[in-house]
Structure formats: structure tokens, C-alpha cells
Amino acid sequence: MPPSAKPEPRSTPAPKERLSRELVLTTALALVDAEGLDALTMRRLGQQLGRDPMSLYRYADNRAALLDGVSELVLDELSICPGEGDWQSELRRIAHDLRDLALRHPNVVPLLVTRPLSTPLGLRPLGTLRPLEQILTLLINAGFSPVDALHVYRAYYGYLYGHILNELQEYIVDPEENEVLLRLGLHRLPAKEFPRLRALAPALAVYDGMAELDEGITILLTGLAGRLSPDATPAP
């Protein structure tokens, strides 16, 4: 080597991002978004992070804790402001935001809908309970009694999750088919037993999730407003 020549510096690998609960959960959510809930295991998550799976137990005790953390992370994206606007406008906005959230993370929706069924209310992750607390506050401030506010919440979220699950279903059997009965697979239904459903094929084929949600929310809010006592005054 000539005396003036300098050795080329050796390239050093970029340091790994410091492991944290936030990194573990965001990576877990990305894995679920890409491959579904069944793909989320400690081993697979460790591979995604380039870490020993055993190191992840510092941030989640088990897979169930990972699922709870993913639920909290997704619901953290839902903004609820009990003190802003009138209660009907706020519930309508939350409904649209929750639908958008579900469309961004469709693989997480079954987790949000079914996982709470296996966990007592007081043992659920705090992040999954905050929407309940905030919506109860919104409704009580609007003049509903605490018990009525709970009834409203149950009807409201029951409708929302039902709509979201319905929208995420596969409606189209053959997207290349022009005839709506064939495209939706409704031609398989006996015509004499399902005349109304078959007749609705054109409406089913042009399903608009946002418009359908808004129509249902309007029906729900109109009924709920009728339950509110005329002399009820919003809390300051």
C-alpha cells in the first residue's frame, strides 16, 4: 500500500432501535395489519424486531397481554372530546372516526369486538375502557341520567360494531360479472323463498359504507333525542 494511501473505514452496522413497550406494540400492530391476528406470536414478533423472543416478556407477559396492548394502541387513535360540541354531533363524529379506524386496521376489529367478552369489565386494559368513560361523560353532561347514558352507550356501540362487521364482509363473489345477482352470488338463493333479498341486489351491489353508517346514526340519534327529558339541561 502506498504510504499516502489510507485504509478505507470499515462500515459498522446501524444500531438497533432501543427496545420499548411502544416499539413492541407498534411492531405487533403492523404484523397484525399485514398478516392477521394468528400471525402474532412472541416468536414471530421477535423475528420482526430482530430480537430474542424472551426479551419481549419484559414488555408483555404473554400473547394475551400483547393482544390487549394492540387493542389499546388502536383505540388510542380514537379521539373523544366530551366537552366539545353538542352530544349528537360528537356521537356522529365518533362513529365516522371509528369506522375509519376499522378500515385502517380491519384485522384488529374482531379483537375489539370479541375479546372484551372474555374479560370482566374491571380487568380490561384501561385504554379499552376510556372510550366508555368519555362517552358516558358526554351523555351525562348532555342531560341523560347515568343509567340511561349506559343504555345509550350499549345501543350506540352495538350498532357501530354491527355496521363495521357488516361493511367488512366480502359482498362480491365475482367482480367481473355485470349481472348483480351473479356478482353477489344471490342467484344461488331459491327465488320463491328469498324474493325481497334478490330484488335488493342492485342496492346491495352499490353499498356505500359511509352513507349507510350516517343513515343508521341519524335513526339512532333521533330515537335517543326523544328519550331525553325536555327539561334536561346540559351540565356546565
Rank of each mutant, 00 (worst) to 15 (best):
L182Y: 07
L165Q: 13
S71L: 08
L29P: 05
P230I: 15
L117M: 14
P195H: 07
R130N: 03
L221G: 01
S145D: 11
Y156F: 14
E212I: 02
S71N: 08
L184Q: 05
R154E: 13
T128H: 09
L101I: 15
P116H: 09
L98W: 03
Y156G: 00
A203F: 09
L138A: 03
S4K: 08
E90Y: 01
P146E: 09
G226F: 04
A149V: 04
Q48P: 01
L23R: 13
L200Q: 08
D86I: 08
R104A: 11
P9G: 06
P131H: 08
L98Q: 07
A64F: 15
P125C: 09
D38H: 07
P2S: 07
A235Q: 12
P110W: 13
G83L: 12
D214W: 12
T218M: 10
S79T: 11
P146H: 12
P9H: 06
E133Y: 10
A201I: 07
L45D: 05
V109H: 00
H105D: 05
L224D: 02
L200S: 07
S20Y: 10
S118P: 00
L228I: 12
N178P: 02
E17A: 15
K192N: 10
L221A: 01
D68P: 03
H96T: 07
L204P: 01
P120N: 07
L213M: 13
L75Y: 04
H105V: 11
P9Q: 08
A5C: 05
E167G: 00
S11R: 13
P7F: 09
L184G: 03
D52C: 04
P230H: 11
V109F: 05
K192V: 14
D231H: 09
S145F: 14
D38L: 11
V32A: 01
S118H: 12
L224H: 01
L73S: 10
L181V: 09
R18F: 06
L139R: 00
H187K: 10
N62R: 08
A60Q: 02
H163P: 01
G122E: 13
D231V: 15
A201R: 04
K6G: 02
A102D: 03
L98M: 15
L91N: 04
L168G: 00
